[in-house]
Write a protein that binds this DNA or RNA. Structure first.
Lengths: 130, 130, 130, 130
DNA sequence: GTGGTCTAGACCACT
DNA sequence: GTGGTCTAGACCACT
């Protein structure tokens, strides 16, 4: 897993780390049981404060995507069993999609973009077993 | 246009108002030139301070979705002419979609949800059944 | 003189009219004594309210660039005799130039842009006398 | 960094603060990572309400020039990487320059003034005379 | 009558 | 201790 943080971006660093872990899980680069780098290692790599990485991991834990334990470190949790999108996700999606449409982009074009983004996730899961 | 604010939600009230205006524009409930309620009127309807509505309107103005002038009040701006999704929109969409997939929802299911949300926007204009 | 107003722009229409008259004078398309179109004519051409054009003309009058009289209509005033830039102009220029530099554009590049804009004004004054 | 606000000027106080921070960045008095004074401290210094400073900082944040976070306060963002002047900047510059020329100032004189203003920005970085 | 600005003061969220 | 949000109320600018 390769993470990149942009120290000068307007998105908080902990949020960037959280987002990239989420995307890595979606891509299948991280699967159930995959260990995440120790917070201190990651912090050293990025040259950021240890607490910043800690905060990202804590966010992911709150979202139920990773498990933290003293000995084992951080590992990816099994995907949730319930297959319904939480209503707050739908609300955020509605607003985001509305934003594009309100700016004059056609719904078709927006959907195509979503499809492109989604297909970039799916395939990785069929872990190539050569 | 029907707006609802949830005073106890963790999303700031001004953001909720902004989001709902964006959605109303996407739905076609508000179109180019449509007047928005005066800040103070809307504030009274919601039982919130007019400054809160003011901030929402100011956000929308900065996003180029509405125009504000003292005498005339707030009116919806024409949709932008450029039809490309800004890269920052795509980045936000990528993260949001990844979040659903990382939670174990299948990409197909996520796409269907997006499609449902999007069709609730577009059709309003094609609704004439002649 | 050809004026264009963008009804959907975020810049107020009266401001757009004012700006374009200023630019026409700078270009030499309008010189001392040149008549401006009657406000009602211009308003009809643009499909805007008569008061909007009126406001633009009043702004120009306050700036000393045109003269208004009931019979004669609006005519361009002689260029001011004092050849110094008012301090408030310099202040506005300072802020505008600083904005570009603060965003990482090199001062040289900014100056070149100013020069290009300025040379587009000058030549027109040598009214071709064929 | 030395800031001055003129309470009796027609330019809003929050705009004056915003402009001066922009100029300080252009001058190199504030560089990437430089902390800005806490909103409440600055407000006390000027004898204005902290909300006024807040609005100025919020503007700067939206322009991407500073970053705000609760614990850390306000710090200057890295300069943008793209080196092109946005078209809206050029439009504003065109109008401003036209204004000077329309008042009878020679384009050469205007350009010289721009150059003087610009050289007051750049050199701060090259000032090391080793 | 409309939005725009500013003051004053409270409480909250995050560090 | 820092910014973020919200309320309450005043006065101003422009239509």
């Amino acid at each position: 897993m390769i993470l990149n943080v942009d120290l000068s971006a307007d998105v908080p660093i902990y949020q960037q780390i959280r987002d990239q872990v989420v995307e890595a899980i979606a891509h299948g680069a991280l699967t159930e049981g995959s260990p995440l780098p120790p917070t201190r290692t990651l912090a050293a790599d990025f040259g950021v404060n240890f607490h910043t990485v800690n905060k990202a991991y804590d966010l992911l834990r709150q979202e139920g995507l990773i498990r933290l334990s003293r000995g084992t470190g951080a590992v990816v949790t099994a995907a949730a069993t319930d297959q319904v999108l939480p209503s707050d996700w739908t609300a955020r999606a509605r607003t985001l999609l509305a934003e594009a449409v309100a700016r004059g982009i056609s719904p078709d074009e927006v959907l195509r973009t979503c499809q492109t983004l989604l297909t970039s996730f799916g395939p990785a899961k069929q872990e190539d077993t050569r």
